[in-house]
Design a protein around this nucleic acid. Structure first.
Lengths: 341, 341
DNA sequence: GTGAAAGCGCTAACAG
DNA sequence: CTGTTAGCGCTTTCAC
């Protein structure tokens, strides 16, 4: 069939030089109006599109932003991708999505692929772990770390969440409902987010003059399954009247674990989730959560992405979003606590 | 800092020709073992990656698959993207996601961008509407239509869903529960899916010896809002005891509209949703749905994607997935119907 | 085994 | 205003 339409093929068709075609198509004023019109018309008719491969090879930036997420099943990640895709589209950028499943090796593979295509930038939720050769495989790439951060040995920007206040508030709220035995399930402490959330929980407990039982602070590689298993272990132990989740996946897994066990929220146990998926408000009379405005986070990320200049230490290289406690039914007093009262 | 590492820069470093470097890195046997090792070692140390732009310009296929979806907020689309990303990754492909919001002009813009980067293929949920110049802007692109199909004037493959049987079953199930006034909310009839689902509903009604009221068959451009508004209008009319949804967005919007109105499912009205998001089973004692195995659909799409050869009419160019009716609490008899009984 | 040349599509720089 | 040349990074082809 028809071969690729190029400026050369158009030039040949029209009996002019390919440079004139190039100029006409890039609105260079140094082309006679007639020639320009003829070229544009012909290009339109043939469905010409410029080869990004060629311009990239000459040194142009690509329009491709890589987004590395654990998955797209969690509503928070899906909504983030949705918002980010919308925001960056306004800047002529497009989104390549790679799923890492929080596996650091997959993360490296994905970054290599993005480097091969000379991605404009990479936005990533860094996977847990250490690699050591980051300096090599992150070369020539603008990196934005999302939600959590890892030492990358390479300049990077950060779009993070400050959920400390919301977590402290969550503990205090539960305490005010009469809860004294409160469990926490979160990501491992080696993750920046895992560490800070757990610390906030401990701070909140101290502020409420409660002594957290170390058995009831569970931290591990965050996943749906981890949340699911941890919550069921806690339920089975039966020592606790309330649970706070410190992670998107964990929250969904834990909630699922509760419902599967048929426990009533908050009748049997009080529950504070993390990330506020759309359906939480409809379940069990409403699930309380530590809410993160996903759209704002995507907007802040886009700012980092489009603001030129390398990542300096002068404030603009980091964006911080405040999380917020949303109180619904699931975090009130349990039936037992009500009886005591 | 350091400029891009290329085969030429490596060649210069090692005092050999760039061709030897090229051969060494692509496992061409015609390189002395020592040279090969030296080259590979040096390339590793410098973090060399081959330029996809260069190989693309020479005619290599890219690894980029475009995925055009209305949005990523709907769990079905997010899960599809998740599954597809996983499946194609096994073939060394990566996913660029464009959100169309079911707007045919955005769809065209996205396709143009994908054509510029010479995407390997495009998987798209075609937006409603007509354009006419598809032949031009779909040039040189392998197209796979997803869920619904449009006349594209260009060869395309199709990954579709056969939900006829499930919809007929849904009507019959409702009828068996005593429902006689059943409403249907679905996509506009100009959409292949909108038409076939509505037809199935009518077929089902006929099979149950019920006469559908034309006021109670609502079809329009499918969206969350449309489902939300349509269901509330139906509730307000109060003529109907059951509702069937024919679309992912519509189903979520309609369910939301019911919950917002505080109607009890199925106490006040029976409800059959579409697409089976994970949380439907936990809401209102379980929402009945017309379920589509999203992972299977992604697997079938991947087959179409990787099976080489142009889209012939001989069977392999189309993949069909059967939908399935899942009965939960929300589609049983309403309280009124129980009283009559 | 190794290297030199050519060309993929495009534009900056220069020459008319 | 228009055309020619060169080169971005890579591999195929053809020498040596």
């Amino acid at each position: 069939m028809s071969n690729r339409v190029t400026i050369k093929s158009i030039a040949q068709d029209l009996g002019i030089s390919h440079m004139t075609v190039s100029r006409a198509l890039s609105n260079n004023p140094k082309v006679r109006e007639n020639t320009r019109k003829a070229v544009i018309k012909h290009a339109q008719e043939l469905g010409y599109v410029k080869s990004v491969a060629a311009t990239t090879m000459r040194g142009d930036q690509t329009t491709i932003v890589g987004l590395l997420l654990p998955n797209l099943v969690n509503e928070f990640y899906a909504r983030f991708a949705n918002s980010l895709a919308k925001y960056i589209e306004a800047h002529g950028l497009q989104l390549i999505i790679h799923l890492t499943n929080d596996d650091i090796n997959k993360e490296r593979e994905s970054i290599l692929k993005l480097r091969e295509i000379q991605a404009y930038a990479v936005v990533m939720v860094p996977a847990p772990g250490l690699l050591g050769d980051e300096k090599k495989y992150l070369k020539d790439l603008q990196i934005i770390q999302l939600i959590r951060k890892r030492e990358l040995r390479v300049p990077s920007r950060e779009a993070l969440v400050d959920d400390t206040g919301a977590i402290v508030q969550a503990v205090q709220h539960l305490a005010s409902q009469g809860h004294t035995r409160i469990a926490y399930i979160g990501g491992e402490k080696s993750l920046s987010s895992g560490y800070s959330r757990m610390s906030a929980f401990i701070t909140g407990m101290a502020a409420a003059r409660l002594v957290p039982n170390t058995d009831e602070i569970v931290t591990d590689t965050p996943s749906f399954l981890m949340g699911h298993q941890s919550v069921q272990a806690i339920i089975d132990d039966g020592n606790v009247t309330a649970i706070i989740c410190g992670g998107f996946e964990i929250s969904n897994g834990a909630l699922n674990g509760c419902l599967e066990r048929g426990v009533h929220l908050p009748g049997d146990i009080a529950f504070v989730g993390y990330g506020d998926p759309s359906y939480y408000r409809w379940m069990s009379g409403g699930i309380s959560t530590i809410k993160i405005e996903v759209d704002s986070l995507a907007a802040k990320t886009t700012e980092l992405l489009t603001q030129r200049g390398t990542a300096n230490k002068n404030g603009f290289a980091q964006q911080l979003l405040m999380a917020e406690l949303v109180i619904r039914q699931s975090s009130l007093a349990t039936d037992k606590l009500k009886q005591v009262e």
